[in-house]
Computed example of a mutant assay.
Amino acid sequence: KSLDFALFTYKIFKDIVLSNEEYLDLILSDAYTHRTYYMGLVDDKNRTNFYDGKIRIVDPKGNEYAKFDVHEYEKYIAEHVEPWTFVKFPYLKKVGWKGFVDGEDSGILCVAPLARLNVADSMATPKAQEAFEEMFETIGSKPVHHTLAMHWARIIEMIYAAERMKELANDPELTDPNVRVTPTETPSVGISAVEAPRGLLIHHYETDENGIIKKANLLVATQHNAARIALSVDKAARNLIRGGKVDDGLLNMVEMAFRAYDPCHACATHSIPGSMPLAIYLYNLKGELIEIIKRE
């Protein structure tokens, strides 16, 4: 049933979205396009994997930049801090932080469904592989840099997840009584990674001799995407505002730019209470504030 629903969803997407030139043009428009690095988990055949494997990064041209075990993440990823937000901005250490710009010379990277497909050479299940090939053939390039294609990638991953669930349900290890490994020593460092729906999570913990956590570092999906989200909001606003006219329609179009990432700022700031206020401040060429549009 899950696979039927996933394939049904994909059919609706193709019938309603891909068959509509206006929608397809919106997906491919420059207003929602950023050429960045991409990061995600892959298995030993460079196929998408949600739970295990190595972290793979490709550059804006699709070339493999790095492939490493999560325990080595600090060799590749650093975090930039800005005074106006609690969210830290991960970037590629060797490329460096060049500010809020995209391109091969910028260390900004992206995770989430589209990134996972961009770093993978293929999918591990047949129906998902068909949809994977169809997406890249339709768009005509790999990696895909169009932010709104994130939803397309989500549907492909839905198909993969449904097929994979069926495989796991028939795996004899599912009923294996050996479900727990008893610790034989006190750990001092624990580092792991897993793919959440919105992108790669990296957790790093260090403990004392009593197993009490003395250091913790969490790199969550919205952090990885934070710099690209900032680029997306800025570019959408610059491309869509015409003649100084702003309305609720513009607010919706700008919101589309960051909603595609499925952001969780409570996660990214490590703060429990979350809300979604949205405000656009419109300035003229003299730098004078002329209008504010808010959504509480």
Rank of each mutant, 00 (worst) to 15 (best):
P60D: 09
V42N: 00
D247M: 04
Y283R: 01
T125P: 07
D208I: 06
G103Y: 11
A115E: 08
R198D: 03
G243Y: 02
N46P: 00
R259S: 10
Y205W: 03
F5A: 12
T9M: 12
D30S: 07
S188M: 04
D15L: 01
E133P: 09
L218V: 15
S122H: 09
Y283V: 03
L148D: 04
N118M: 06
Y32R: 03
K215S: 10
P277V: 01
N46V: 03
I293H: 12
L282R: 02
F13I: 01
H265D: 01
A279T: 06
A6G: 09
R198P: 01
V181G: 00
L174K: 15
K286R: 13
L3H: 08
I108R: 14
T33S: 09
N217C: 09
A112E: 08
G103A: 12
R295Y: 08
I202T: 11
G190S: 14
G53P: 03
K142E: 04
C264W: 04
S192H: 04
E157D: 10
P90V: 08
E74F: 12
N239L: 00
D262C: 01
F136E: 01
G190K: 05
L231E: 09
H151G: 07
E104I: 14
M253I: 09
G140A: 05
G62E: 04
T182Q: 15
L28R: 05
W97P: 11
M150F: 00
L219C: 07
I77D: 10
